[in-house]
Nucleic acid binder design. Structure first.
Lengths: 211, 211
DNA sequence: CTAGTATTGTGACATTTTTCACAAGTCGTG
DNA sequence: CACGACTTGTGAAAAATGTCACAATACTAG
């Protein structure tokens, strides 16, 4: 195993995993790097290189056993367990995420929702009651939260982030359009939809070749 | 100007732009690559290299004129115009996007919302009536839509995408967790939140050094 | 005008990521 | 078993991306 695995590799592993799930659904028993590449949107060599960073999972001449590779990937990605997620911010984005079926499917359990708006606190989402964000630290400790999703306005994002980290959050997914600062040990993922739109804007304006 | 500008560069330009907007708000007249780097989360050399791909905008010994660089970046990114956006899918994600203040701020005008659910069609969002997705092509042509946001289930994403492209959409922002196929001339941006969560899951599991 | 300080733009270098090419291994068939 | 069709795993080459170092320039102060 290598010292460092690139982010691009991890992204691709997720794609392979999804492709494998489809393949299993179709009843396919084994798959070649070529097929996997086609479905994952990359090349056969890339697939093999990506996988080879973690071991040898294929059989020469035959390919990869779908079922086996699937569980290997799950284990590599850390998806062979449940993740306890706290959702901070019960606005529209928060609501969309809470209902997002793919999260639960992949083992990301939203165990608590918090908001600072008194009008929202106490309201039920499914069987989860929205709690006051004052209780953030308490909730994280009490429920053993691993990951925190911050779907809050810029102005309060950094302070909530700091508090989440202090209370033991190991990863933060941030939807605010600000560059959060977190300690080295905490992992941060920024989702910035405007940025994506701007990249499209640039690409179209430039009218250069795609991708 | 170079043949090809990397995606990472474009992402950083967006960050610089945001930083410049803050700086202007603070009344700063000029900024050094160093300051810009600190705010954009990169290095001074990277800032200069990024900008140098498009021309020479700074003054040696002095730095960059905030106002001027801001409008240059806007123009490079194609943000010196309004973009006409169609939102397909009036579910929770669609709703969150529609209300997203940063989109409008950056010139992305959501001129039409479509959905296939008869219960939703005709309902008003602000002063926009939700139209039937049957009218997708018509709406795109009639309103001169440039960009289409697909916030719909996987099962219908590809077919709606094809129709949008055929009707003249130049860019697609896809929220479905499937790899859409589009012609070369059309630009595609995939937003996959599960993927981001999985990357966090991996990072934490591995417990390697951050970033 | 000169010296001193600051900061850009850029070629050369370093690192990371992707692609290529092929030996090595596997299976089915006769 | 021998052969042919296939496919992996991987070192080496190529391409892309990021870092460094420094000449060139600009402003300020005396």
């Amino acid at each position: 195993m290598p010292k460092r695995v690139s982010d691009s590799t991890i992204r691709r592993l997720s794609h392979y995993l999804r492709a494998l799930e489809d393949l299993e659904g179709e009843g396919t028993g084994t798959v070649s790097s070529n097929d996997l590449a086609a479905r994952g949107g990359t090349t056969a060599a890339q697939v093999r290189k990506d996988l080879s960073q973690f071991g040898s999972f294929g059989k020469r001449g035959l390919g990869y056993a779908v079922c086996e590779l699937m569980s290997t990937l799950r284990s590599i990605l850390g998806l062979d367990r449940k993740w306890r997620v706290a959702l901070v911010g019960a606005g529209r984005i928060g609501s969309a995420l809470f209902e997002y079926p793919n999260f639960a499917e992949r083992g990301f359990d939203c165990v608590v929702v918090l908001d600072s708006d008194p009008a929202k606190i106490g309201r039920m989402w499914g069987d989860t009651a929205i709690r006051s964000s004052v209780e953030l630290e308490e909730a994280i400790r009490e429920l053993g939260v691993d990951l925190v999703i911050l779907a809050v306005p810029q102005s309060v994002a950094q302070s909530l982030c700091d508090r989440a980290v202090a209370a033991g959050a190991k990863g933060i997914m941030n939807f605010a359009t600000i560059q959060l600062r977190v300690p080295k040990r905490v992992h941060l993922s920024n989702v910035n939809l405007v940025l994506e739109m701007e990249a499209l804007s640039f690409a179209i304006t430039r009218a250069g070749p795609r991708e």
